[in-house]
Design a protein around this nucleic acid. Structure first.
Lengths: 123, 123
DNA sequence: TGTATTACTTGTGTTTTGCAAGTGTTAATG
DNA sequence: CATTAACACTTGCAAAACACAAGTAATACA
């Protein structure tokens, strides 16, 4: 059942570790998977299946959990799919799109310092 | 006992999830704590105690583990302390210093999108 | 020499993860 | 319109990672 998107009325910062913007960001996307989902969204992927098919092989329960957290954090939203279908699609909000420089910085670092990596992310 | 720094002869990329530079970076620093240690190093902190005293309160065993992983990953190295003492200090390598743009991007994002955060990181 | 500090390690219980399997819902096909 | 396939999840369970407290060994200082 596709969740009804209850939008979690208001649970802003239950336990923020510190007022540091870095710590605060990591509370939202500081793990092995979340930024890969955001990478995929930036690359134009938008559906559950798309994220599953990425080469890193995220488990479905982790993906569900992360999408929920990203939705609660205001980084993604669900919208009607681009094609005529009635299914929903995930999309970055402005807050999520603003993470592009973060992804770009990580990508550039990886390309320079981790031999054997190659980018799919443009720009 | 301060570890002898065995330097782990050669364990380059045991299990890389994909050739994506982002995924590869996250294998090294994709968690709640690692980038905070790097933040502290950029801020000029260099000793075990310094990291412990950061407001987020990293547990000591996690700190030990992360420092070891960062050393194995070539992001930090141990050098004689600046003061006369015989104790060691942690320092970023060139590879570690190259993560500055990543930290800067996360900081800027947090400052803009997470209300109530304030930066210690300059530049 | 004694005490405090530093830099850890170890132990224990809790939480998170990874994997497989199952479930309801929508889309495609005959 | 009935079946089937694909999709978007949820559930269960073992294994790993985490958080917290306590303990230990080596400096540093008095």
């Amino acid at each position: 059942m596709p969740r009804k998107t209850p939008a979690k009325s208001s649970a802003p910062a239950p336990t923020r570790r510190s007022p540091c913007p870095v710590a605060c960001g990591l509370d939202l996307f500081g793990d092995k998977w979340t930024l890969l989902i955001i990478r995929d969204l930036i690359l134009g992927r938008s559906r559950f299946k798309d994220f599953i098919e990425s080469p890193e092989g995220i488990p479905t329960n982790i993906l569900s959990d992360r999408l929920e957290r990203l939705r609660d954090g205001g980084i993604v939203q669900q919208i009607p799919a681009a094609d005529g279908s009635r299914r929903l699609a995930y999309q970055l909000t402005d807050k999520g799109l603003a993470l592009r420089p973060v992804l770009r910085a990580i990508r550039d670092w990886g390309l320079k310092w981790e031999p054997g990596t190659r980018a799919n992310l443009e720009g």
